[in-house]
Nucleic acid binder design. Sequence first.
DNA 1: CTTTTCGGTTTCGATTCGCTACTTAAATGC
DNA 2: GCATTTAAGTAGCGAATCGAAACCGAAAAG
Lengths: 163, 163
Amino acid sequence: MDAKLREPLRDLVKCSLPAALEVMGERWSFMILRAAFNGLHHFEEFQSELGIARNILANRLGRLVEHGILTRTAVAADRRKIQYELTEKGAALLPTMLALRQWGERWETGFRASPVLVDKRDMRPIAPIDVRAWDGRVLTKHELLWALPEDVDYGEAGLRAAE
Amino acid sequence: MDAKLREPLRDLVKCSLPAALEVMGERWSFMILRAAFNGLHHFEEFQSELGIARNILANRLGRLVEHGILTRTAVAADRRKIQYELTEKGAALLPTMLALRQWGERWETGFRASPVLVDKRDMRPIAPIDVRAWDGRVLTKHELLWALPEDVDYGEAGLRAAE
DNA sequence: CTTTTCGGTTTCGATTCGCTACTTAAATGC
DNA sequence: GCATTTAAGTAGCGAATCGAAACCGAAAAG
């Protein structure tokens, strides 16, 4: 019945990853998201593109809508059709999806994907998704540290980094 | 039997995301990875930290080792103990994990996680994980475009962006 | 030399997945 | 106007996966 000495250590791991995974951690969720980023909007498009079972697709679309990742609206011109569209919250997953995809390119498939996401104004591919300091410097593993809140310098600007 | 006019469109979606998800897409994989980033190394540590069932944990650790995310070595000083450690490939998932966690902070939990990943030299939190151009400019949705390889300018430096 | 610790494996019931067939409502063809 | 096709799901059901709890073997500790 002694209090665990390492209890503070367990608290180290109160982070938002579980919450994020509750929304996006199921099978197919990221694939559906990617399809949405690539401009697909309809049930049958997702189904034939991904080859996913229809009941699973219906379930996942429902969950993504529930969690505010996609909106679901009937198309006025053809009332059979439902239009799924990314919300701001869903679009905010782009860096996550790209980081995962880039990792897959580098460490699994070895090839560059198509289509390539480019900067519209010069048609160059985006940079690798990296960990950076507040001023934009790319940080390597050795320059990083896990710190407790009281040891962190949030700077004059306050909580900007969380946005 | 007519050839689909949109067939090229289907090919738009040959990317490395499925490969990445095959490795990291199962339940608990990202949580185990996060625990590894936070310095846990042993089976019992992962188990008590995550509250995951032992058989599932054993299965996931085995898969992560198979896929080269973790190494598994017996500890010389105590031959009961097994040490799990991140490989370079596993450590390369840091941006992905952070992007997901930051998204969860912004859109799900609303609070900043503990511990915070900081730049060792000034103890400031890292910047938000963003999509950036080759020169480091942060790019918004409206500045981005999905392009076919033949329309992409890879620049004089060749394939740098994929590394 | 008995007990505890570590890293699992086994068992088994509860979920989830995924294939196929069916359904309902709206548009289209004739 | 009536039959057909299309879009977006549901329903049924077997296979695979998950998860809680008990069990196990080897090594270390007392």
